[in-house]
Design a protein around this nucleic acid. Sequence first.
DNA 1: CGGCATCCATGGAGATACTG
DNA 2: CAGTATCTCCATGGATGCCG
Lengths: 119, 119
Amino acid sequence: MPGFTCGLDATLRVIAGKWKPLILYFLAQGGPIRYGALRRAVRGVSDKMLIQQLKELETDGLVKRTDYKEIPPRVDYSLTPLGLSLAEALVPLCIWGTENMAEVTRVFALREALNGKIR
Amino acid sequence: MPGFTCGLDATLRVIAGKWKPLILYFLAQGGPIRYGALRRAVRGVSDKMLIQQLKELETDGLVKRTDYKEIPPRVDYSLTPLGLSLAEALVPLCIWGTENMAEVTRVFALREALNGKIR
DNA sequence: CGGCATCCATGGAGATACTG
DNA sequence: CAGTATCTCCATGGATGCCG
């Protein structure tokens, strides 16, 4: 249903998905990155999820996939200008997390103690 | 599991939850806001979800809840300094969404046409 | 990568407490 | 009966992950 309540709402839908923000972030770190390297960078993803989210980012015009059609297969991913601009908007979140990591860690440890598992 | 892979990862876990970024954003718009008003601002939330996410934000030290212990009930919510700093980090995302809303809308319309439903 | 099984977040409906 | 704030039970859909 087109029609977002505000700009933030629109952005959130674009980066909806457990790994998309991290993918964008790592793609922004440097030039084109090969699939395997990306897989290693985004720790914890399964191949299925990584492929799936990359494909969505690609159809959304944020990521560009290049298949060199070589043997052995060689494929790399990079950001489109649109994707780059979004990745840049993520930088403050990254900074916030870095600056407050101790605090966040502490709070999450508490939750873990209370609930058994986090959320 | 304490131990985040990076700052962005830490932040993402804090704002995990469909409505948390929006809640933080609206709380940052002005002074303390009453529950009912917040409910109206965050369009689409159910009472259950709003309460639940507010409680998590509160235990995470991002939101301050004030209960005036009156009858009929009167409660309002505001940001802690930590919450405010996070809300400020969300501003670029909001701007990005606003600037690219047309593009985002178009892309999502395509997805809708292909899949029947989004994602 | 496609199926299949699973698990958790989301959401709806109803209940509560108290007053005007 | 209307209004405010919150909680609990239950249903379900969609995201996630494992396996071939």
